[in-house]
């Protein structure tokens, strides 16, 4: 379980994160949703140790940690594939960087390529394949980190609606087949409702948690589910009020 207790952050005299408490259950899919520019990415930067935390604590599996640099894998809106490396080489990068056995890594990557429909494209350069394939490759790389925690920073927001749908189901794989603890940031309410076990609505800056909704309906879910549609309206209302204020 990941716990964030009383995190606060500011740049100069601008308070970015108000006082934030958050719990993400182990093996759960926690989705953070909030107005743009509310400081979600700053939160991830604090978690990954890119920005030193100013106040508050991060607790992972019951132990207080400085940051999650060694614990988390990370995926962004930008695929961040190295343009000079083939898709396979990109997927092997985490293994290469921490000196793991490459033969074993190659086998794992090969399996993941098949799972995510990238088979046959191992030797292509990122520029030679579609945005959806690049993002799937980024997903393979994220899995190749072999870390228990996965941080997703709007991983699908650069994709078209159809590609996004198919990738959402692949994100579910992360949780269901690989037992990862997932924390995802998104702007897309529907996406949040389809994927989340726990949905956290964030305020605009300075960011704090406004509401937490636990969803326990089984996945995969359908966007047309009346329960979800009702929730969707409610969440949009809350977010809209937050913007108007």
């Amino acid at each position: 379980m990941l716990e964030i207790i009383g995190i606060r952050h500011g740049f100069r005299d601008l308070a970015v994160i108000g006082r934030m408490d958050l719990r993400a259950a182990g093996g759960g899919f926690t989705v953070l949703i909030g107005p743009s520019g509310c400081g979600k990415t700053t939160l991830f930067n604090i978690l990954t140790g890119v920005v030193p935390g100013q106040r508050g604590r991060i607790v992972w599996q019951g132990r207080q940690v400085e940051h999650l640099e060694q614990t988390a894998a990370y995926m962004q809106q930008k695929d961040l594939l190295l343009p000079w490396c083939s898709l396979l080489e990109n997927a092997l990068l985490p293994a290469r960087m921490d000196g793991r056995n490459l033969e074993e890594a190659r086998r794992q990557a090969g399996e993941l390529f098949i799972r995510l429909g990238l088979e046959g494209f191992e030797d292509y350069l990122p520029a030679e394949v579609s945005g959806g394939m690049r993002q799937r490759c980024a997903l393979v790389r994220t899995l190749m980190f072999q870390r228990p925690l996965v941080l997703l920073d709007e991983p699908l927001s650069a994709l078209d609606a159809i590609t996004r749908r198919s990738l959402q189901s692949m994100l579910l794989l992360l949780q269901q087949d690989f037992a990862k603890t997932i924390v995802m940031i998104t702007h897309d309410v529907e996406e949040a409702l389809l994927l989340a076990d726990r949905l956290v609505i964030l305020s605009r800056r300075p960011m704090r948690v406004m509401e937490t909704i636990d969803l326990d309906s089984p996945k995969p879910r359908r966007a047309s589910d009346p329960e979800l549609l009702r929730l969707r309206e409610r969440i949009l209302d809350v977010l809209q009020q937050e913007l108007v204020l």
């Binding site: 990954t48 890119v50 190295l82 985490p94 290469r96």
Partner: peptide, 26 residues
């Protein structure tokens, strides 16, 4: 170099030498 890549390599725990070889140099 795009800061996104720096974060990525940081999380991968890559040494400076490896970052240089696989990221910064290319």
């Amino acid at each position: 170099c795009d800061p996104g890549y720096r974060i990525l390599f940081r999380l991968m725990g890559a040494s400076f030498g490896r970052r240089l070889r696989y990221l910064y140099w290319p």
